[in-house]
Design a protein around this nucleic acid. Sequence first.
DNA 1: CCGACATATACTCAAACTGAGTAAAAGGGA
DNA 2: TCCCTTTTACTCAGTTTGAGTATATGTCGG
Lengths: 300, 300
Amino acid sequence: MNDALAHAELIAVLTAVTNDEPRVMTVSKGEALPSGPFELEHRSLQAGLREWVNEQTGHPLGYLEQLYTFADRDRSPHDRARRTISISYLGLVREQAAPGAGAPGWHGWYEYFPWEDHREGRPPALASIAEALNAWAASDVSRREHRQKRVDLSLGLNGAAWNEELALQRFELMYEAGLVAEAGGVSDRVTGRPMFADHRRMLATAITRLRAKIKYRPVVFELMPASFTLSHLQHTVEALAGLGLHKPNFRRLIDQQELIEETGEMSSETGGRPAKLYRYRRAILEEHALSSARLPLSRN
Amino acid sequence: MNDALAHAELIAVLTAVTNDEPRVMTVSKGEALPSGPFELEHRSLQAGLREWVNEQTGHPLGYLEQLYTFADRDRSPHDRARRTISISYLGLVREQAAPGAGAPGWHGWYEYFPWEDHREGRPPALASIAEALNAWAASDVSRREHRQKRVDLSLGLNGAAWNEELALQRFELMYEAGLVAEAGGVSDRVTGRPMFADHRRMLATAITRLRAKIKYRPVVFELMPASFTLSHLQHTVEALAGLGLHKPNFRRLIDQQELIEETGEMSSETGGRPAKLYRYRRAILEEHALSSARLPLSRN
DNA sequence: CCGACATATACTCAAACTGAGTAAAAGGGA
DNA sequence: TCCCTTTTACTCAGTTTGAGTATATGTCGG
C-alpha cells in the first residue's frame, strides 16, 4: 500500500431550533463551522467528534450522523504536499439543553440561505436569483436548454413545484453560475452570507439530509424539549422544511403514527385555547420499523 | 491544529446484476473488497476511486456514491501508531459492460447474506438464525425484553413484517450476538461467508443503501443494458430487494412514472409471448424532481 | 395443424392514504 | 359579555396501493 498520508479533520454541523428558527453553531463570528483534528486517542470518528464537541461547546448532543467526506485538493493553498480529509457530521441539539442557542455562535440557517425559507410564501430573494440564473442559462448557447431545465427544476419555475429537498442542488447551481460569494459572486441579502471555504456547502448538505430525514424517521424529537404542544412540533418541522404545513393533516399524520402521548399537562402560552402537552414515545423506535416501502410488494 | 496523520484508503463495493443475481466484485477469492490508497495526485476522493477501479478492473462504472467513512482503531493490530481512514463507495456496473461479471472475482450477495434473499419466501437459514438470536436475547435477563424486540423487528417475527431495508441492522445484530464468523461465530450455510475485517459490514451497508435508493431514485437503470424487457427490469429490482414483486403493479408503477419508452423491438427469449423491449429515458432525470414528500403540505 | 404451455399485457376493485376545507371548543382580554 | 385567537375534531373527494382476474401471443410437443 502506498504511503500517502493525510490530515484528518472533523467538521460538525450542529443544529438546534429555537423560537421556530433553525440555527447552526458557528465559530469566527458566523463565518465557519466548528472543526477539530481527529486524534490518535479517539476510539472512532464518531467518538472523536462527540468528545471535542463536548469539550468545546458543552452542548450534549443527542443525534449524530455522518454527512460526507471531502478531500478535494486546492482547499488549503499553503499546504499542497499534504491533503486534508474532512469528515463532516450532522448533530442535533435539544433546544432546552442549549440555552445559548440564541447567543453569539448560533446563526439562523436562512441568513446563509435566504431563498430556502418558504414558510411565508416564496421569499423575495428568489425572484432575483431566478433572474440571474436564467441569464446564466441563456449565456451558453450550446447547453442552454439543459441549464434552463436545471434552473426551472431547482427553483420551482415554469410548472415545476418547489422542492425543499433540493437545497444542496440549488446551492451548487448558484455556485456553478458564480452567484455566491464563495465562487466570486457578491454577498448580499439575496445570495446570503458566505462562509469559510466550503463550509456553506456542508451546511447545505446538512439541510438537505435533515429535510429528507424528518419525513421517514422521527428525528425532529431530538430537537424538541421533553414536553411540547402539537403546534410547537409543527412549527419546528416547518422551520426545518422551510415550508408551511396543513395543520389538521399534520396532526393526523402524527397521531396515526403513535409517535407521541399526552403528558396530562396543558400549556396556555399562545393566547388562544390552551394546548395539550405531549411527550415523545421513545419506545416507538423499538415497536415499529418505520420504513417507507414504495415498491409494489407481493405476498408469496 | 494537531499533527495527527493517517492513511487514507478507498474501498469500493462494486455491484452488478447478472442472471437475476446481484453480485459484488471481490479480491482474494471472495474474501475482501477491492481497495486502494488515496494518493496525492488524485483530484478528489471520487476521482481517485474512479481512476483505480478503471486501472484495476477495466469496468467503466456509471453510478458512484459515497457510503461511509470508518476510522475505528484496532482495525490493523500491527499498525497502532497510525490510523487508517477508510472511505467506502458504492458503485454500480452495467451488466452488459461487465462480461466477466460471472467470472471469478464476482460473487453473489447472498453467499455472504443467505438470510437476505426472500424472493422464494423466507429462506431456511432464517429459522436457525431466529433460534440463535432468541437464545441470545433470553440469555441476558436485564436486557431481555429490549433485545427480543430488536430481534423480532429485524427478522420480521411475532407480527412484525420482513423489512428488506434492515440488512445492515440484521448484520450488526448477528455480530453483536457473536453469530457471524467475524465476531467469533462459525461460518456455514446459515451464517454466510465471512470477509476480511469489516468488509462484510460494508457490503451490508451498500445493500441497505441500494435497497432504499431504488425506491425513490431510478438507479436500477445503471445496472440494466441499453434495452430490456419489463420482466428483466422487475427481476433486477427483485434481485436487489431480495423480494418478489406483484407483476401488474410493478408495471403500473413503472409506466406511470414515464421512466422508460419502447424501442420498437421485441424479445422472444423466455419461451412465452414475446415481450416489448424498452429503453431508459435519460431525459426524465431533468424533467421530474422525483422526490418522496411525505409531509402534509399546504399551499399558502 | 392443433392444443397445451408459458409468458406478456390489460383491466377491475376495494381499502388506505392524501390534500383540502369546515366547524366546534376553550381560553384571554376589551 | 362578546370578540379574538388558537386548539381540536370531523368531513369529503381524488389518488394511490395491494391484490386479483382475464386476455393476448408466442413456442413446443404430438
